[in-house]
Design a protein around this nucleic acid. Structure first.
Lengths: 106, 106
DNA sequence: ATATTATGAAACTATTTGGTTGCAAATATA
DNA sequence: TATATTTGCAACCAAATAGTTTCATAATAT
């Protein structure tokens, strides 16, 4: 049972859930209203998101409010960092080419 | 058959392949040497990566060199953008709290 | 010309995934 | 107290996934 953040965001429904609860904390029922699948299916997605600590839960009576654990999202950003370094380097190279072209014009 | 970039990076082997070919273009055989699974399994991963345009291929004789399509990685960055906005806003709020505390000290 | 090498594709398999229905527990309301 | 609501969990199922073995094709080396 793989359960890391990359696996969590692979599913489009889960990405939609993340987008929803990023705005405001919501109950499973309220979240499920936004999808065609059953509440239980959404509940399963929430469990997966909770297992890799992408969401936090706050019990309020019989309702449970789910909200995004934004800190966890930084893990993806951290992973991207190495590739961002590459594309920024490429951009700078392009920049150098443009500068050279400019100088040749003179 | 879902085939988007999020699904592509969900698999740890594929992320490892991405990391490998980000450094330099490599043939399927050379890539496979870095893993325990068969060349064919790696080949399948490469096909998935190619299908969502995360890698580009360059034929050289009977060898095919695979390299990372860094532009495609920006799609993840673009998706992260909205959440980066959130955690930066939270950071600024924390910053404001610290400033207030500092002023109270005076 | 023949053998070797590099590769992709097809067929098959075990496991995982995302979904369903049904049920039990806890809380709120009449 | 009896009933309704909110939720999670277990059992089940179809489809997708990641892997394997086997085979075909094309390029290179002998």
């Amino acid at each position: 049972m793989r359960r890391d953040i990359f696996q969590a965001i692979a599913d489009p429904t889960r990405r939609a859930i993340i987008a929803l609860i990023a705005v405001q904390a919501m109950t499973p029922n309220a979240i499920a209203e936004n999808f065609n699948s059953t509440r239980q299916a959404v509940s399963k997605h929430l469990r997966i998101l909770a297992e890799c600590e992408l969401v936090k839960q706050e019990q309020q009576g019989r309702e449970i409010y789910y909200s995004l654990e934004i800190e966890k999202m930084k893990e993806i950003d951290k992973w991207l960092e190495q590739y961002r370094a590459i594309w920024e380097a490429q951009f700078n190279q392009l920049d150098n080419v443009l500068i050279k072209l400019k100088n040749q014009k003179k």
